[in-house]
Structures are given as structure tokens and as C-alpha cells.
Amino acid sequence: MNIFRFAGDMSHVVSILVLLLRLRSSKSAVGISLKTQELFLIVFVTRYLDLFTTFYSLYNSFMKVAYIASTTYIIWMIRFQEPYKSKYDASQDSFLHIKFAVAPCAGLALFACLVKGELSPIDILWTFSIFLEALAIVPQLFVLQRYREVENLTGHYVFFLGAYRGLYILNWVYRSYYEQFYRHNWLVYVSGAVQTALYVDFFYYYVVSKYYGGKLTLPT
């Protein structure tokens, strides 16, 4: 554990708490992408199968369970609970059909694992989750773009999620310098870089709007 990784994890936790606060305070899921939440749930469930096979630490196991539970709860809220359910507008959240995200990532993961000779289902699903995570934020970014004016807490949610990814890049730099037995995984680095790059545009408008104290409005 290093400071960047811990700060990244905490930023991730904060983003989820902000999202829950956002849903509860406005009593609506307008501006929130259910698709992104569902993609994140697929990511967590496929990546954290090692909960059953490998014990890293209490912290690690606790966080994994917390991510799965909180994301499941958020999806349940938007899908089945009033008033979120009736206010959720699926037509605003139409970009990127789940299967068009899942299928290419599954194919790529299978290919990557065949090349590396990692043939256990847990390894393949772990690699799949690395690729899918990079795409998971895309529907949310499109929902923001559709409404253009980003509600405060929704903006903070995406900001903390992006900060988490940025801090993980610093974590990999740190680990490759200071951990003797750290093995580079270029697939993790490349999809992590792609994922972080997706946030850059949002970050720019977020920081500018905070600096000038105005509302966060995205350009058309």
C-alpha cells in the first residue's frame, strides 16, 4: 500500500458516497447513467472473484465487498425504487449498449490471456474487467453531455471517480520504483491510461467552473 493507491481508493469511496448523497438529496436519478453503474457492477463482480481464492488483507476484502454492495444498491434504487425509478429516463441513457461493451472486452481478454498462457477462468475474467472498466464511464459522460448543465454533486461524483483513476497511475509509477517484486502488466497500464484520458476533457471544464465559481456547463 502506498499513499497514491490509498488516496485513490478513498477517492473512489468518496465518489460512491457522493453519488448516494446526490440520489437521496435530489430524489431523482436524472443525469445519472444506470448503464455506467451496471457496467461497474459487472467490472467488480468479475474482478473480485479472487475474494473466494486469495486473501490479501482485511482492507482489500472489505473494500471489494463494499464496492459490490454499494453499486448493487445504487442499481436497485434506480431500477426498482420510487421516486428514482419513474424519474429515470432510459432514452437519455441510450449510448453504448451493454453487449457492445461486454463482447469486445471479452474477446480481447480471451485473446490476451491465450497469448499470455493464462487459461484459468479467474484470470480471463480479471483481464476482462480491466478492459471493461475503461469503457464503463462512457455512458455517464454521454448523459452529462446531453444535459450540458451538470448538477453540482453529479460533477463531484465524476471528478472523484476521475481522481481515483489518476491516482492509480501515480500508484503504478510508485510501485515500479519501490517494489522489488512488482511485475509490470502493460494491459493494466494501457487500459488505465485510456480510462484516465476519458476524464481529461471533463476535468478541464470542472476545474475552470470551480475557478470562476460558476456552474459547470459543458460545450455542445
Partner: peptide, 10 residues
């Protein structure tokens, strides 16, 4: 402890 390719990360 040795780490296996970031698999101990969240």
C-alpha cells in the same frame, strides 16, 4: 510481500 501484476489492487 511480492505482488503479482497489480492483482492485489482494487
Amino acid at each position: 510481500a511480492d505482488a503479482d501484476e497489480a492483482k492485489d489492487e482494487l
